[in-house]
């Protein structure tokens, strides 16, 4: 949703396929749901976006993760990096705050892509029923800052990985 470079999506597709051993497909660009805009905060409500993604999800999708360039929030929190239905189908990741520019640094596509991978794996983990992990380096660790994101590795820790492995069994390639 919004402007996400094709190349970045294709790279993400490859990475997700490699990490999860699941078939990964890029779906067409979806407009940012109008009703999700919160005028007084100039942010987008992630829960409303999630509802929209769910409505648009292809019938054969196992899980669907949306990538958006807009800054997201929920009413009670100043921002969220992403949101997922725990054990459900849909999740969403925003790249707005994953960009170096957001924090006053010069753009870095490499860093942005690493962060996006981690957060996409994180939200998909939730979709497969995983909750936050106390291991700071595990991709399922709750990251509230990019500092947290950067400290995580791009993989699941052993215990999250084995839980995930069991859950992805039916679709693994």
């Amino acid at each position: 949703m919004g402007v996400i470079p094709d190349a970045m999506l294709r790279k993400l597709q490859d990475r997700l396929r490699d990490y999860l051993s699941l078939p990964v497909r890029i779906s067409r660009n979806m407009p940012v749901p109008e009703g999700s805009y919160e005028r007084n905060r100039n942010q987008y409500n992630s829960t409303r976006i999630l509802r929209e993604i769910l409505r648009e999800a292809p019938a054969d999708a196992i899980k669907i993760v949306g990538i958006i360039d807009k800054d997201m929030c929920i009413p009670i929190l100043t921002f969220v990096f992403g949101e997922a239905q725990l054990g459900g189908v849909a999740s969403i990741v925003s790249i707005a705050r994953l960009r170096q520019e957001f924090h006053g640094l010069s753009p870095d596509d490499g860093i942005l892509f690493e962060r996006l991978c981690k957060e996409a794996l994180h939200e998909l983990g939730h979709n497969f029923g995983l909750i936050h992990c106390p291991d700071r380096e595990c991709v399922m660790y709750l990251s509230n800052t990019v500092r947290d994101v950067d400290r995580k590795r791009i993989t699941y820790c052993d215990s999250c990985d084995s839980a995930l492995y069991a859950k992805t069994e039916p679709w693994r390639v």
Binding site: S46, T47, I74, P75, V80, L86, H126, I131, H132
Partner: peptide, 18 residues
């Protein structure tokens, strides 16, 4: 009283295992 507040906060907390 607002549904969106309940739903979004619940979802956020559930991800944390609550």
């Amino acid at each position: 009283d607002e549904e969106i507040v309940r739903e979004s906060l619940a979802s956020w907390l559930e991800e944390d295992g609550y």
